[in-house]
């Protein structure tokens, strides 16, 4: 039962079941509204027939020339709605949206300790492109992996060739 709909600003009042998760960050209004206003097609919510939010994905499209790509900013599934393949379904949706926008690849950043998410992305065809030092700051300082998957516009999968060395977060756009 996976119906995706665009995020609505009122969802902010009822997304606690998703956001209380330890790996999901809660941001200020500007963050969510910025994505809602500028990338509504990349900001999707999966809603259960009972009205609860099951999961959401937020992303954007950015870059120039061969760096023109879809980016997954956040992907989170509520506890009660795990093991349904929602994350994979939403990633596929985001990839299709990026295909429609003629992007070369899709990328995402993930905590290097989040092994469950990393193996999911690997299953979906993503590879670790590079490690980003000091990407996550706050209570749990941590490095991130920049994972990528080429789309049909990059048939040689150039975007997925690993960089081979880590970079510092300050050097990342």
């Amino acid at each position: 039962m996976t119906t995706l709909r665009p995020f609505d600003v009122m969802d902010l009042f009822k997304f606690n079941n998703v956001n209380l998760d330890i790996n999901t960050e809660t941001y200020g209004f500007q963050f969510y509204l910025h994505y809602m206003v500028n990338y509504p097609e990349y900001y999707q919510v999966a809603e259960h027939p009972n009205g609860q939010i099951m999961a959401y994905v937020m992303g954007k499209i950015e870059g120039r020339e061969t760096e023109w790509h879809g980016h997954v900013t956040a992907l989170s599934v509520a506890h009660d709605y795990r093991r349904l393949g929602l994350a994979a379904y939403m990633m596929e949706f985001l990839e299709k949206t990026s295909e429609a926008r003629k992007a070369y690849f899709v990328d995402l950043f993930v905590r290097i300790s989040n092994t469950v998410a990393i193996s999911l992305y690997e299953k979906l065809g993503y590879v670790v492109y590079r490690e980003i030092i000091g990407y996550y700051t706050g209570d749990r300082d941590e490095n991130a992996y920049d994972m990528r998957k080429s789309l049909s516009r990059d048939p040689e999968k150039i975007a997925m060739i690993p960089l081979g060395f880590p970079v510092h977060s300050r050097d990342v756009d």
């Binding site: 097609e41 999707q44 949206t97």
Partner: peptide, 10 residues
């Protein structure tokens, strides 16, 4: 329109 292709259909 700022909608994903499938959202448009729905």
């Amino acid at each position: 329109l700022p909608l994903a292709p499938y959202n448009l259909v729905e």
